[in-house]
Simulated assay, not measured.
Amino acid sequence: MKIKISIWILLGLQLSILDLNAQALTREEVRDTMQVISRFSIHNDNYFVTGVPTNKSINSSTADAKYQISFKQIISRNTLPWDTYAFLTYSQKSFWDIYKDSYPFDEINFNPTIGVEKAFYDSEDRINGWGSLVFEHESNGRDSIYSRSWNRLSAQYSRLLGLKTMLHVRGWIPFGYKSGNPDLIDYVGLGEITLSHDIIPDKLIFEVKVRKGLSNDAKGMIRSRLHYSPFKYPSNQYFMIEWFAGHAENLIDYEQYRSMIRVGYVIKSNEFGILKRNRKNL
């Protein structure tokens, strides 16, 4: 009896593995998907959050609001050389002193990009990763001693680690930054890693991003987020709790250490949904 039970368990595991593999899109299905998805979509998450510092006194000067607008436009649906697709994005992140008189903006960071992206496939010609090569500019749009800007050539690779966890590894070659902020790389480094885990798919998501500066000390940052959707049916709208600790959350005072906890509303991106397998069995 024990032998029969073990055989059935092994067969069940094998069938489950085959079923999971079958859920990943084939090369042809990826190409078909790229033909029908919207050209215009969300790139990074769009959000509005507000919060207070955890490492200093709380008042109208230290509490703030932060919001981001980010979108993506696919330039070419047809594959380019090396099976790539061209796209552009624009992101704008704003820090708003809403608790001060006259509600001034402390800083606005602008981040336009243009690049190419492509799918990667396993030995069975099913998608198992997504990569991009992008030229980026980021600046705060100011002049004189308040000007902050840098350019970078960025490469990113994303893939699933299991059914519920997504890994993003991103690196960059920076240039054009030494005139206004020559030590910026000591704080932002040459790359970052983001890990996102669906605790409850489409309902509760935990995300953490880590970046280490090039200096030998603890310059860098860690940002963790917890997203919760109260809606009965799957939605891209969530409530979010965010904790940021480190440097270079914005450009104007990238040298200053910040520890901020914020809460608010987010419209999440599904840019890498093409990697996610069918969740009906989760």
Rank of each mutant, 00 (worst) to 15 (best):
G191H: 06
L214K: 06
Y233V: 07
A218G: 12
Y238L: 03
V210S: 11
M221D: 12
N236R: 07
V208Y: 10
R225Y: 08
Y228M: 09
L214C: 10
D198R: 09
G191A: 10
H197W: 11
D202I: 00
K212I: 13
G213P: 05
R223V: 04
D217E: 08
H197N: 15
S196K: 10
K209G: 15
S229T: 09
D202M: 03
H227M: 06
S235T: 04
A218N: 14
S229N: 07
S224P: 10
V188Q: 14
R225K: 13
K209V: 05
Y187W: 10
K203M: 12
R225V: 02
V188L: 15
L190I: 12
E207C: 06
F206A: 15
N216V: 01
S215M: 10
N216E: 14
L204E: 01
S235K: 01
K219Y: 12
K203C: 10
V208S: 14
S196W: 02
K212Y: 05
N236V: 00
A218I: 12
S196A: 12
P234N: 07
R225S: 15
F231K: 00
P201W: 09
S224Q: 14
S229F: 07
K232H: 02
D186R: 04
I199S: 08
F231L: 13
I199Q: 12
G213A: 11
D186I: 07
V208E: 12
D186G: 06
F231N: 01
K219W: 01
F231C: 00
Y233G: 00
Y233S: 08
D202N: 11
P230V: 03
S215K: 09
K209Y: 03
D186Q: 11
P201S: 14
P230A: 07
K232A: 15
G191Y: 02
D217W: 04
L190T: 08
K209Q: 15
R211A: 07
I222F: 05
V188M: 15
P201N: 14
E192S: 15
L214D: 05
Y228C: 07
R225W: 06
S215V: 00
K212D: 13
S196D: 11
D198N: 14
P201M: 11
E192K: 14
S215Q: 04
I200L: 15
H227N: 11
D217H: 08
H197V: 12
S224F: 01
V210W: 11
V208L: 01
S196H: 01
K219L: 08
G189E: 02
V210Y: 10
K209P: 09
D217M: 00
Y228E: 00
I199Y: 11
K203F: 04
V188N: 08
L195M: 14
A218T: 09
K212W: 14
M221T: 10
I200G: 11
L226K: 08
R223T: 06
G220H: 10
H227P: 00
G189C: 10
L204W: 03
R223W: 02
I199D: 12
E207Y: 05
G189Y: 06
S229V: 04
Y228G: 04
D202C: 01
I185S: 13
N216Y: 11
S215P: 05
V210H: 07
G220D: 08
V188S: 10
G191D: 04
R211M: 09
N236F: 03
L226Q: 05
G220A: 05
I205M: 08
Y238P: 01
I199R: 06
K203V: 13
Y228D: 02
D217Q: 03
L204V: 12
V210P: 02
D202K: 04
L214S: 13
D198M: 14
S196M: 12
